[in-house]
Structures are given as C-alpha cells and as structure tokens.
Design a protein around this nucleic acid. Structure first.
Lengths: 216, 216
DNA sequence: GCGAGATTACCGACAAGTAAGTAAGCTTGC
DNA sequence: GCAAGCTTACTTACTTGTCGGTAATCTCGC
C-alpha cells in the first residue's frame, strides 16, 4: 500500500539506500521509545542527518510512521501477511516458526508491540493499519481452521472465531512479556505450546473448567 | 509528598474525593491518549482544575501515573492481584470472570493495555510496576497449575511455565483486539475458550501440530 | 463562639525545555 | 548549471514544573 510510487522513478540508488537506512533507524527508535516519544531528531542522529533531513525524505513524522509499518510488512513478515503464507493447517506451524524467528529480532518485535498498542489511542495514525491487519489475520487463521476441521472430519465452527483471535492474542501477549523478561519467558516455546493447545481446543475440546473445581 | 500516609491523616473528605476524581480522569485520559500523549492539562480540564491544581495534589506527572496504577489495583482488580484471589483451580474461573467483567469497562481496560505496552519503552516510569505485576501473576497462575495437576494426578511441570505466561498473554492480546473491534471480538467468550484450551493443554496435551500436516 | 494564625486548595503567570515543521541557501553529482 | 540532498537558522506550539499570591478552611486559646 504505501509504498511509494515514486521511489523507483526518480531517485538515485544512494538515496534509496538512505531512505532504507532511515526506515531501519525509525523502527529502532519507535521500538525503543514509542512513536510519540521517539523524535525525528533521534532518528536523524542515528543516520547522521538532522531532523530536517529526515523530513526532506518523508515529509512528516506521521508519514514516516506509516512508511515504517508498510516497510515492515514488505520485508519482514511479507511471508506472514499476504505474500505466500501457507494456506491450510501449515499456517499454524508457520506462526510457530515466526515466533521462534522473532526471538532473534527484539527491535522489530518491540516496535510492533508498542505501535500496535499505541494505535488504540485517540486518532492514532496507525489505527487503521492495525484494524485492517487484525481483520486480515483473523480471517486467514479462521480459514486455516476451517480447512483443518474439514480434514479432520470435525464440525465445530462455533469456537473457530474465538480461537482465531486467541491465537493472535497469545502471540502478541507473549511478545509483551518476553520484552519485559527476555530470559524468563521463552517466546518460541510458549507460542508453540499455546498454539497447539488452542488448535487442539478447537478439534477436541476437553473438559470444562468448572469440572476441575466441582469434583474436588 | 505523594503517597504520604494514607491521606486519612490530614486531608479532609472533600479533598479525598477530589483526588479520586482526578485519578478517574487520569485513567480516562491516559487510556485515551497514552501517558506520554495525555497531558496534565487534559486531566485538569476534566475535573475543572488547572494543571497546576493537579500538580498540587500529585506532585508530578510521573507520580500521578504511578498512583493511577496503584489505584487501579486497589479498586479494580484487587480481587485479582493479592487480595483474596481464589487459590487453586478456581483461579482459572476467576480469570474468565474477570474477562467478562472487563467487557463492561473499556476505559480501564484501555488504560491498562496502553500503559502496559508503553512500559516496554526506554526508562518508562511504569516499567518496574509491570515487570513486577507479570512476575507475580505468572507465579500465581503457576501455583494454580501445580495444584490442579496434583489434584488430577498429572505430572507435567514442563509446560506449566509456558502455559502460565500464555494465559496472561491471551487475556492481554484479546483485550487489544477487542479495543480495536469491540463488536467483532468477544472478550469474555474468547478468553473463556482460550483459558480452557490452555488448561486442558497442560493436563492432556493433544496431538502435535505437525501431525495435522504430515498425515495429510 | 470568635478571631488570630496556620494550613490547605487552587489559580495565573512564567521559566525552561522540547518537538515538528518551514524557509532559504550551500553543495554536489550528473 | 540545476535539481536533489541537506543543513542552519528559525518559528510555532506545547508541556512540565515552579512561584507568588489569594481565598477558603481548620485549629485553638480564650
């Protein structure tokens, strides 16, 4: 979506690269400080420019923010979003793999975590982006569930919606805890466990919670 | 200055009430705008004071923030934190009930969501608070799991840590999605489903995810 | 029960700092 | 030699926190 249009048309390669550099710096800064707290000067410093220089390339802070998100999609989780995400049950494995991969890039995880939650606030520029993102992801996970249910001969659409949201939710929530306690919480392992539990919860719902309490 | 012994000593009732009013306003403002973006003047406006008036009561913005968090604990989830949280397997039911209850107070949920994620950023004043909070909560959930496992005659401490973090994670993650799409995501229902799935995942781990793909 | 003296609660004005954005001009590769 | 890439120098708009002052409220001796 964002992207550009013109990058390709009229910019020299050196410029292109500078912009990429700025985007990477912005990911780091916004990740470390949030988009409200991180300043253009912070970003500029990191790439050896003044804040006006950054503005020259991106026009406004808000625009930089949006381009950062677009950039992240395009490079990072291109795989996860719309590129060639595995369609069926493999999606779940893919999500687990993503969680493990994320253990290697705390910077981006932090940027994403901070920004997604910031987006909830009044008129945040990235709100639309995240609304759309979650809608898309939930739809994809739901589709995977439907395929899986069909494959396993189970009919249980009732919990699929809850499960789809839940899978995305654990992943996000674990990221937060992992960022706060990197060596207590194991992002990959925990995600794997939770996703497995949720998938199995759709296919073979076990006992109700109440049963563990009553029969005591 | 601030916390001073409980206010009871030296403040008159009208003042007490005013402070509570300010705290409630702050919850709303910080919830709507984040703690960085929300200003003292915003809070002050809401209670018919100037920002200096707010400062008079709370000393500094940072202190106000911390008092907001303490206040939330004390009133809101007093039940959930340390007050009289049910100890054993009932804890899980309690968490589910909390999720349903949260559907009725988006303001506080939003404040909490925004602040907890903001806390990840550099030197955020609330970071220590949230680190401690998650540590405590994970410990409590773990304890509940141990009790439950004992009760059910299962020995499986291996996944308990992951499961404990996961339960808190889903709850947080679902809150975010619910805030973005209040009428698509059902906070209570989804939390109930996910917690049940995770609990059962500890007690009776089902098939591995790989099995759904390989045997296709 | 009352009036002097101390405390509060609060406001207006201001100090100091920080951010985004603008304008105008230097520099350089092509 | 000219446009793109940047910088310097500002401007404008906030924000937090401080200060002095004022009015209301409490405390107490008498």
């Amino acid at each position: 979506m964002a992207s550009d249009s013109r990058d390709t048309t009229r910019t020299r390669p050196a410029t292109r690269q500078k912009r990429t550099e700025i985007l990477n710096a912005a990911v780091e800064i916004f990740g470390n400080k949030g988009s409200t707290n991180g300043t253009l000067a912070d970003v500029a410093d990191q790439v050896g420019l003044t804040h006006a220089g950054v503005l020259h390339h991106f026009g406004s802070k808000q625009n930089l923010l949006l381009e950062v998100l677009a950039y992240r999609d395009q490079t990072d989780v291109a795989e996860l979003t719309e590129q060639h995400i595995p369609g069926g049950p493999e999606l779940f494995l893919h999500l687990v793999r993503t969680a493990f991969a994320n253990e290697m890039r705390p910077g981006i995880v932090q940027a994403y975590t901070v920004l997604s939650n910031e987006s909830v606030t009044d008129d945040h520029p990235a709100r639309a982006y995240f609304e759309e993102r979650y809608t898309t992801l939930r739809r994809e996970v739901s589709a995977a569930f439907h395929e899986l249910c069909a494959q396993e001969g189970v009919t249980e659409p009732a919990t699929v919606a809850a499960a789809s949201a839940s899978i995305l939710a654990v992943m996000d929530g674990l990221q937060l805890q992992w960022l706060l306690h990197p060596d207590v919480v194991e992002l990959g392992e925990a995600s794997a466990f939770a996703i497995r539990a949720i998938v199995n919860g759709v296919l073979h719902p076990g006992p109700e919670l109440e049963s563990y309490v009553d029969n005591e």
